[in-house]
Amino acid sequence: MFELTMAKGSILQGVLEAILDLVNVANVDCSSKGFSLQALDTEHVVFLSLFFPSEVFRSYRCDEDCSMGIAIADMVDLLRASNDGDIITIKVTDQNFEDITITFESPDKTKTTDMDLQLVDARSHRLKISEWHDMESEYQAIFCMPSAQFMLNCKSLSVIDDDVVIRVNEEVISFSTKGKSGCVNISHVPNKTDNPEKASVTLTHMRGPVSLTLNLRYMKSCAKVSTLFDQVKIGLSTKLPLMVECKIAEKGYIRYFVAPKITE
């Protein structure tokens, strides 16, 4: 049996709302450690991997590891029907592995709403990616910035063109674009420390200068999720997709991997 409860408007609900513009269907894996989700956008440009440790929920129980495909858009629609103050329970029983049950309970416990959502096949939405601790050393540059700043950069650049070039070297982290009507270049002078301050842009890992070109449509989607958190961590590599990460509590995370644009 798997069962988690959360208050309406909790972080999981906010994140599911924010990923909808990219993702319809997701693979969800539950273990005693927590709730993880992987999804691929229809164009196979963005892969999303998130892990919510059990302690971020109001209550969490998972007797046996389970894996299921969930139509996230339908699930979010159902969750939207909850009222302020409701406690939301998501449950899968061992007897029935065809659907999940979502329950809303009013704060005074006088009203309960039960809904069943059919599970779907989402196996084609999986990718084989290495453990993050193995991948992290492959990134040439990793920096952190306030997520509101990241969103602002993406919005400012998308006025001019569909693409952004992110360049990182020891001295500067820049976001730039060039279009028919002009160009924009936003430069940040980074702090260099392992312990980033919340309000600043910090270069945490640097193994050599690197630049990548990315489609701003996808970047804006990543920025949308990141604004639920104070800081966003961005990793660049010429051999891997761009990585955008937000931390959830001590061990949790949301990671987006975004395939860059390449010159042919």
Binding site: L40, E43, H44, V45, V46, F47, R123, S124, R126, L127, K128, I129, D163, T213, N215, K239, L240, P241, F257, A259, P260, K261, I262, T263, E264
Partner: peptide, 14 residues
């Protein structure tokens, strides 16, 4: 010409 790459160029599908 700049072209959008796909994740399958970086990761294997399962």
């Amino acid at each position: 010409v700049r072209k959008q790459s796909q994740l399958t160029a970086f990761f294997a599908s399962t």
